[in-house]
Amino acid sequence: MASLTDYGPAMEIQWCPGCGNFGILTAMRRALVALGLEPHQVLMVSGIGQAGKFPHYLHSHVFNGLHGRTLPVATAAKIANHELTVIAVGGDGDGYGEGGNHFINAMTRNVNFTYMVHNNQVYALTKGQASPTSDPGFVTKTTPEGAWAPLRPLALAVACDCSFVARSFSADIDHLANIIQLGIQHKGFAFIEVLQPCVSFNHVNTYEWYQKRVYKLEKDYDPTNRVAAFSKALEWGERIPLGVVYRNDRPVYEEQLGALRTSPLVKQGLDPQQFEELLEELTVQPLKPHR
């Protein structure tokens, strides 16, 4: 059984002291240990941003790719080896901005992996520009007049019939660790948004700001009711819900792929000769001369 120390950082952590990302890291470690997963069973995929550094800070397989391109890499790695537990992580700029098209399509496609967005409502690594989730009026160097209209990612997710949609808060490690476990256990694409205070570049949406607003979904909340989930997903401002907002058990993409039925693609042997029948199909059979 893996322990927390097995998931210890693989290199020096470069986040600012007090950054919300630390809480997420702790919660992720706990969740992986609680699920009994060993580091070599887990592939973490990320893009670029402060959140993109996340996989380097815990022992697992790591593919740290391009800004915004996390989901296609994770999708294909899962299809190529569906025995891997694949977890994609990234920032709000990475996932909702640069990678928005991949986000939508990953949700509709429904490959079985987990996607965690560290939403700090700002571009942190590039030192404080507006992001797709910045609140209206949020002043940055690129938005001196204030940010304009925010995306509501959870509502987008419900609209895409994403099979698992949840939100948590980096300062509530128990809640987050539990949500991550649920996400990993969920069969299908699991989207988890984590509210993550950035202490250096977002002085509006601070720990206190979130703390004052977040609340946990009521016990009798039904996450399988898509229409109700949509209005829950739109809730933002004075009150911000945490928990599993929506889930369904839609068929998983890779399960309908005949190619994966016998074994993971990576374990299948390669045999050029098996394609002889395709050559036969294209062969022109001359007529036997009948004279």
Partner: peptide, 14 residues
């Protein structure tokens, strides 16, 4: 963009 990143992801997986 997704196509090439997928090919890379599958290549990485083996």
């Amino acid at each position: 963009i997704a196509a090439i990143n997928m090919a890379v992801g599958a290549g990485f997986a083996g």
